[in-house]
């Protein structure tokens, strides 16, 4: 998903001649700072705005869902018509699962844990990934070699393999171990990216200039270089959030994740396949749609951010 879609043809086809035109235009825009420019570009990205709107709904669900539609494990409809539960017409809006729980209440309550897992995983992964990548890329030499060989190793082991084994052996159905497992296994790709950015950024003039006035290594690495690497880092951070939400869903679907009484979108999906033959499509459909919509929205947002934060992007 690396090329910018759905744009008018002209924007990306600037010929040699119009470079001068673009340069003139840049001069006029000089008065805006970097963030204002980024915001201007972001606002023009229609899909990113759609993403923000969907995410706003999901965040609303995560914050207020459990308050407005509280989940009570004892609040069950017991007059079930059969193993597939009520369909959405018999029990609006999303029907019920086989135990008589409202699928809507599950979705509304599951947003909180799913979003929490997504964001905290991202925070852990970004912290480690940026630290490792920055140290490797900035200092180079044997430090770089050691760290990157380790990253290579982790990346050559199937990710899902380690995650599932760790979740099963060390997760214990608890939230914190699960988040730690996700976070501690999600950073290598980001570290590789940050290292590549640092390798090119540390050769640039502004680093030399900072060195010339006696700025220390750590300060250069994190105060001078890091802000210049922020765009790609933010974009992959959004992807980590999306991946963690999907991952939690799969792990919980397999019953290796959260305990049954902790409601997440993944837990809402668990056991939904058992009754598949009786046609209870609403049971997995709505929690899955919530995940899919959230992930689409995050991807839209990530695309918008990438275009907005790309320092080479032209107006």
């Amino acid at each position: 998903m690396s090329d910018q879609p759905l744009r008018t043809p002209a924007t990306s086809r600037v010929t040699a001649l119009t470079d001068t035109a673009a340069a003139d235009y840049e001069v006029a825009l000089e008065s805006l700072n970097q963030w204002q420019l980024a915001w201007r570009r972001f606002r023009r990205h229609r899909l990113a705005l759609v993403g923000v709107a969907i995410l706003a709904v999901m965040v609303f669900l995560a914050v207020f869902g459990p308050i407005i539609w509280p989940y009570d494990p004892l609040d069950l409809r017991r007059d079930l018509p059969g193993p597939q539960g009520f369909d959405p017409i018999a029990m609006p809006p999303f029907g019920s699962d086989g135990a008589g729980r409202s699928v809507f209440v599950l979705v509304a309550n599951g947003a909180r844990l799913s979003m929490l897992i997504g964001t905290t995983t991202m925070l852990i992964a970004v912290t480690i990934g940026v630290l490792v990548g920055a140290v490797a890329g900035f200092f180079g030499g044997w430090v770089d070699n050691l760290l990157m060989r380790f990253v290579d190793l982790v990346l050559s082991i199937p990710f899902l393999f380690i995650v599932l084994v760790a979740a099963r052996f060390f997760g214990g159905g608890e939230l914190v171990p699960l988040i730690l497992i996700f976070g501690l296994l999600s950073w290598p790709g980001l570290a590789r990216l940050v290292r590549a950015l640092y390798l090119s950024l540390r050769e640039q003039e502004f680093v030399l200039a900072a060195r010339a006035v006696g700025v220390g290594d750590l300060r250069i690495a994190f105060r001078h270089i890091l802000p210049n690497a922020i765009g790609p880092v933010v974009v992959s951070a959004t992807l980590i959030v999306a991946n963690a939400i999907i991952l939690e869903a799969f792990v919980s679907y397999l019953n290796f994740g959260l305990k049954a009484q902790d409601i997440s979108w993944g837990n809402a999906l668990a056991r939904s396949q058992e009754r598949i033959a009786v046609g209870n499509w609403w049971w997995p459909f709505f929690p899955g749609m919530a995940i899919a919509l959230t992930v689409i929205a995050i991807n839209f947002l990530g695309d918008g951010l990438r275009d907005a934060l790309d320092p080479r992007a032209k107006e």
Binding site: T11, L17, T18
Partner: peptide, 11 residues
């Protein structure tokens, strides 16, 4: 001529 976003350039 080139038609770009900002107008037409008569190259």
């Amino acid at each position: 001529y080139f038609h770009v976003l900002d107008g037409t350039v008569k190259a």
